[in-house]
Design a binder for these strands. Structure first.
Length: 304
DNA sequence: TCCTCTCCTTGCTT
DNA sequence: AAAGCAAGGAGAG
């Protein structure tokens, strides 16, 4: 099936598919080919350069689903509310073509479990390998869908290691088994306070703060999640004017970037890695989000 | 409770 | 060619 989609705001497909949020897209003659759910798609700008053409095979979810996946309905600039001054940085404006994809939560969990101490090429190899070994075929292509947690739960650790997962293999296996046995409610994770959602995800083996935030941002439509990795740690300390800072402090400081801070995180990642230094921003005088210097008193844990 | 260090795999880079 | 490095996490001390 072939869909013609309209686009609101700037769109940079190259940046969107190479920025490290998704791992099943490859360039193909001015277009991008990838697997989403049980479909494979070829995505390209239309001849006028205004809209988007999506040609899908397999179980095509339909035009609306593709538009939602690519987040075409909103202008990315709406997420800059908390830090409009960043727009004056040279090289910032073109990055606004980056779209945060709305990806499947489980596939996002599995993908980012593969991301520990890895790079994008490595992650892609692992994810593609898992799909080709355990996924269902997709009609019209040699590529396969990403397997369900229940499927991976029955895999053997050696099979995953053979795909190059290394020390990540037991994490993925145990997480798949955990989710197969006790599924998480994606709906709840999307509504819960960010700290709560993050804590829930961190209960999965192999999922720490950084990967939990990536799952929230890329797989659960939580643009208020702000994953702090080595690059963002540096970028945030720079903007906060700090030479050293704990991750908790950086999390707290990042609140000033507003509810779209997760989107900004993506842009900052590129700016800090490819560009020069970042401007210093101070915390907002009247922080929009209440902040506590100390954790609330803990009630004694009730025992079952 | 918090901080720091080390190990865990793999493959590409220096 | 050995060492370093890469969008981390867990366990020890």
């Amino acid at each position: 099936m072939r869909h013609h989609l309209s686009v609101h705001g700037p769109l940079d497909l190259d940046l969107t598919f190479t920025c490290g949020q998704a791992f099943r897209w490859t360039p193909e003659k001015g277009a991008w080919r990838g697997v989403v759910g049980r479909a494979e798609a070829l995505v390209r700008r239309d001849d006028a350069g205004e809209g988007l053409v999506v040609a899908a095979s397999g179980e095509d979810p339909g035009a609306r689903a593709w538009a939602a996946y690519l987040r075409l309905e909103e202008d990315p600039a709406i997420h800059l509310a908390g830090a409009a001054e960043l727009r004056s940085i040279p090289g910032f404006e073109p990055l606004l073509g980056l779209r945060l994809l709305r990806q499947d939560p489980w596939e996002t969990i599995a993908s980012f479990l593969c991301s520990a101490a890895a790079n994008i090429v490595k992650i892609s190899r692992c994810v593609e390998g898992i799909a080709s070994r355990f996924g269902d075929p997709i009609p019209g292509t040699a590529r396969r869908a990403f397997p369900a947690a229940a499927t991976l739960a029955r895999a053997r650790e050696g099979e995953l290691r053979a795909l190059g997962l290394g020390f990540r293999a037991p994490f993925l296996l145990e997480t798949a088994r955990s989710l197969d046995k006790d599924p998480l409610s994606w709906n709840t994770l999307q509504r819960a306070p960010i700290a709560e959602a993050r804590a829930t995800l961190q209960s999965l083996p192999g999922v720490g703060a950084k990967i939990a935030d990536c799952i929230l941002l890329f797989g659960l439509d939580r643009l208020d999640a702000y994953p702090v990795d080595r690059w963002i740690r540096r970028a945030t300390m720079e903007m906060a004017g700090r030479r050293r800072a704990k991750d908790r402090e950086l999390d707290e400081w990042a609140l000033r970037l507003g509810p779209g801070r997760g989107y900004l995180q993506q842009l900052l990642f590129h700016l800090r890695r490819n560009g020069g230094p970042l401007p210093r921003l101070t915390p907002l005088p009247q922080a929009p989000v209440a902040r506590r210097r100390h954790a609330p008193p803990k009630r004694s844990r009730s025992r079952a």
